[in-house]
Nucleic acid binder design. Structure first.
Lengths: 148, 148, 148, 148
DNA sequence: TTTT
DNA sequence: TTTT
């Protein structure tokens, strides 16, 4: 009867693409985003610099979905707190498949945009545009490797 | 060059089965466990009590894998800190599949067993056995629904 | 206007004493507990085993305060999520003093008891009543000279 | 013998002033910063917009202290993971006082700068030197009468 | 003052 | 004392 367990995910990273927002039948909003978290380290064996980027599927509900739709876009850096959920679905051949997502509900979860003006002193709109632009190239080869 | 991003998962729950531990070619240990996190709440519409159990695949490395192999078993309550990783694999038909796991490395991650003796004053071994037993029934219908 | 910042504390440890619960003028409950978190490690220099226990003052509000009064006691292991708050007060000599506490609100915060029954075997209702009672007395001299 | 307990603090906020960095006798660096975390909400009673800023004293060690000295300054937005520690000291009148800090060790802790370049454009090396210098002076009177 |  |  009492709640038992903790299921918490904390991510800080950048959106790989613009959010996808849709309305549920009951009028609530749902936003779907892909978030990249990168880490780099020195390989203890070879001493060389390594980097690994992990892609996360994040689903935002309610008010947070609306904020996502209005303010987030490809390249935006955000912080989120949510929880892990794995849902079952059927692929074209009727086979069971499972997808794990980080679900962010306004109650118990959080989403924060980071970096504010980020040194954009003067020309905010230009800065906003240049960021996605500079990512277009490198995004070429990661868009098709995303598991979702 | 500098590390950028946060990828952190915090789970507290109970093992659905005994851990599976194996040795990597280099001698390191890897333990695989399934962790259940349950939450319950009152449905705001109907007022009825709801419960949802989420199952997580957790992979422990190194020293933590060894501890898992030695001390954890079906029913044990643990706390872990790790990170999300999605890995790609091919199913029998050669199709790409993706599995998301919570990876716990000794560096940056953590695993703690909870509850110590838990009122078991006197007969620890009996207590250890009774816990899994009481879970055997309800585990009937969740073992085959686990995505991994 | 928009919320900016993250302030989150996650603790798992044992109560050093029974909780102290009191009612606010508006009828809400507030529980005050001290929580010990211990860590041990090998000193890299000397190789000897070290242990350090940190004591935290945790304040629970509302429903969580009531649960604390009913179910927690000295030695109970709990998990909490809350936030840091430093409040200012005056000591006997009128000097400003500051106390940092971990505040756990039902909204955004969490409290979970760990490890099952932990010794409450037998008379739960009696325990429920005795806890608040013993708290009223000891809370008399609570504020004036302890670190928190 | 085994570690028991979790003591974790996650903060994201802005520095209230430039970091103060000093060297320990053994050559290690220690950086002291104050971090503001703000939250805003609508008062459920009055409906008015409220804001609360909490100030945290954060201590960084080792490599992270050096990075703080080189790159952080008043206003910088950062994310940190550390742990709570309360230390005892004596004020001028010999009375015991307690100060709670968030301690960030490179092992187990983390510090990340957010939002990109944030205005440091131009003369990084000059900034690197000036920061420690200005810290040495102000750290003189650092310990004796501020809340932290 | 807790706990292992 | 920060930030939006």
């Amino acid at each position: 009867m009492a709640s038992r367990g903790v299921n918490k995910v904390i991510l800080m990273g950048n959106l790989g693409q613009d959010p996808e927002v849709r309305q549920m039948p009951n009028g609530n909003s749902v936003a779907s985003i892909t978030l990249a978290t990168s880490e780099s380290w020195k390989d203890k064996q070879t001493g060389e610099q390594k980097e690994r980027t992990e892609w996360h599927k994040v689903i935002l509900f309610g008010r947070l979905a609306e904020i996502a739709g209005q303010y987030l876009k490809k390249g935006t850096q955000i912080y989120i707190e949510g929880q892990l959920q794995t849902r079952k679905w059927q692929d074209q051949s009727g086979q069971d498949r499972y997808t794990t997502e980080v679900v962010v509900n306004p109650i118990g979860g959080t989403m924060q945009m980071l970096g504010g003006r980020q040194g954009s002193e003067g020309q905010p709109s230009q800065q906003q545009q240049s960021a996605p632009t500079s990512q277009n190239e490198s995004s070429m080869d990661f868009d098709d490797d995303i598991p979702f």
